[in-house]
Write a protein that binds this DNA or RNA. Structure first.
Lengths: 145, 145
DNA sequence: CTCAGTGCAAAGGTTTTGCATGGCT
DNA sequence: AGCCATGCAAAACCTTTGCACTGAG
């Protein structure tokens, strides 16, 4: 459901780990292709529409399920726009953050060694280990101002 | 959880500006009191529930309308949690982020002037304006290591 | 008296889920 | 054959809105 593994609930004593259960189906490929066609964050509806325009037919529910699976597998980033809609984008390999226009969705990838260092320092200062973090920046891009 | 500093919305920079039309009613005071009772972001439902538990009775729609008005007036910050729910916090509180233990959920509030400055700098560097950001740090707390 | 504010319920939109079917392995 | 993935539709949710009414100025 999310791009990172936030799930404070479900302490999961059930010993399951089915992670690699991702089967390469036509629908999955269609979603992946649609994602590849964008270079910024898009909503599920937009992705669904693009797939249909490309001739393929994939149910909206399947789009959601596929996107959730991809996000879970770390192949796409999911976040929410200011309207609360979930938006997705295929993510590159390197760790980076996003500067997203809340009007048109234009995205800039930014790296922040300073932030990386700061988060690690803060965490260790409080005795926390095994650190990860998420950081998103929203704003209005030059074209939309 | 996430953090922000600006509440955007209000698409029309246009003609009308009825801002100072906020009448101090019982309901408005109830919402304000509920907000004052929290020191972090809460959903409309949680705020509504707290008001009812305190004996007052305010319609959920009114809670939403009041929160929207307060956000519009700049008296509260609104943002979205990972589930896409709108969450509010009285903005007199200092802006901070959260360091969360992914095992037990223990949370530490941290401030990061450096991060605030960095995000603003990055955004302006790319010509983006009206900046807000979200930052969450996950780790394993001392007790869970 | 007038009009912003309120309550209720219905509408609107997004995301999830139940269940039967279809396609890989 | 066994199972996971899919589709469709209904459900679940959060949030907004229409309309008649109440209360503050």
């Amino acid at each position: 459901m999310t791009s990172t593994e936030h799930t404070p609930s479900s302490p999961g004593p059930a010993a399951d780990s089915p992670q690699r259960t991702v089967r390469p189906t036509r629908q999955r490929r269609a979603v992946a292709a649609a994602l590849a066609g964008f270079d910024d964050f898009r909503s599920a509806q937009e992705i669904h529409d693009l797939i249909q325009k490309q001739g393929d037919s994939v149910g909206l529910a399947t789009v959601y399920r596929t996107l959730a699976a991809l996000a879970d597998a770390g192949e796409v980033d999911m976040l929410r726009n200011e309207d609360g809609e979930a938006i997705w984008r295929s993510c590159s390999d390197t760790h980076h953050h996003h500067l997203v226009c809340r009007t048109c969705g234009a995205t800039v990838e930014v790296e922040g060694p300073a932030v990386e260092r700061w988060t690690n320092a803060i965490a260790q200062e409080h005795g926390y280990g095994d650190i990860s973090h998420t950081l998103e920046i929203f704003g209005t891009c030059p074209a939309c101002r």
